[in-house]
């Protein structure tokens, strides 16, 4: 019960802090003081209190999309193990539900972008749905590897079962899919080198271009949903990279917090030392992720 409460608390409260850590890391690299760590919370709270401006072209889809984004991300967060214990909800095959929840969010976000009738948002939607066609197969190859290593078809079993005695030979595949999953994480959460969340040029955006017309509470929901997605996908990656637990909740939760904030810092470092790729080069990066995950699987079954 306590575990469930902490799980929910972390899932609901922690995500914006990750954005704060990323921004702070980038500021540190650039030699600036940067915004406070809690700035994303202030932003979201402020947005939630502001009034809406709606484009005259939009329909209910435009208003529904942020709700779908947030609720699917939170539901996905209930399917993964955070901290030491298992997930609140788990059943064989929940990994597919997990992956397809993000598909549902993508469908509505991209449709909402087209609802505004703006060329920029259409461009963003086109990029988002195209790149997903490459990152989804990579994700499923990674899930295949995890299923094979752990012998389980539920996310909890897969993500907590990679440290068993039989998993020693799986080190190389796990390393390969970690790289692949990291690229998928960067792509799905719209980070450099795939997308630049801070860009000011509409032509070069992906995710930001899709939400140009969202304002007030709707935009607050989108920011929050993106942060939850970062936490959820980041946790999956962490469980693959560092599947260690102490078996004691009071040690595991702090360990998890250190790990996830560390991951945010790593993303900040990547964002600081890399430039965004040219848009036509992004597919190569994603195919690279697909290759990492695919070769990981082949290594495993050889």
């Amino acid at each position: 019960m306590i575990h469930l409460i902490i799980h929910l608390a972390v899932l609901l409260i922690l995500p914006p802090l990750l954005l704060g850590v990323i921004v702070k890391t980038k500021a540190w690299f650039a030699g600036r003081v940067g915004a406070p760590l809690l700035q994303p919370y202030y932003d979201i709270f402020k947005l939630m209190r502001r009034s809406l401006v709606l484009s005259t072209t939009t329909t209910w889809i435009f208003r529904a999309a942020p709700l779908v984004t947030v609720s699917t991300a939170l539901l996905a967060g209930l399917l993964i193990p955070i901290g030491g214990g298992g997930a609140p909800l788990t059943f064989a095959g929940d990994l597919i539900f997990f992956a397809y929840l993000f598909g549902l969010a993508r469908f509505f976000t991209a449709s909402a972008a087209l609802d505004t009738g703006s060329a920029f948002e259409g461009m963003g939607a086109a990029r988002e749905v195209t790149f997903a066609c490459l990152s989804e197969p990579a994700l499923f190859f990674a899930l295949l590897v995890l299923a094979k290593v752990s012998g389980s078809l539920s996310l909890t079993g897969m993500l907590l079962g990679t440290t068993g005695a039989g998993a020693a030979h799986a080190t190389a595949p796990l390393v390969l899919i970690s790289i692949g999953l990291f690229i998928v994480l960067l792509a799905e959460t719209c980070r450099i080198p795939v997308d630049d969340p801070t860009t000011h040029l509409e032509l070069t955006m992906i995710h930001e271009a899709m939400v140009l017309d969202h304002s007030g509470p709707l935009f607050g929901l989108i920011l929050y949903g993106a942060a939850v997605k970062l936490l959820v996908l980041g946790t999956v990656l962490l469980r693959v990279v560092a599947p260690f637990t102490f078996g004691r909740a009071w040690l595991d939760w702090p360990l998890y917090l250190v790990e996830i904030l560390g991951l945010a810092a790593v993303i900040g470092v990547v964002e600081s030392i890399m430039a965004r790729l040219q848009m036509r080069h992004v597919p190569y990066l994603l195919v690279g992720a697909l290759l990492f995950c695919g070769f990981g699987f082949i290594l495993l079954i050889r």
Binding site: R106, A110, C133, E136, F140, L290, G294
Partner: peptide
């Protein structure tokens, strides 16, 4: 498995 995933994303 990955092809079915790609089909899903392409259908979206």
């Amino acid at each position: 498995v990955p092809v079915l995933a790609a089909i899903g994303a392409l259908a979206v």
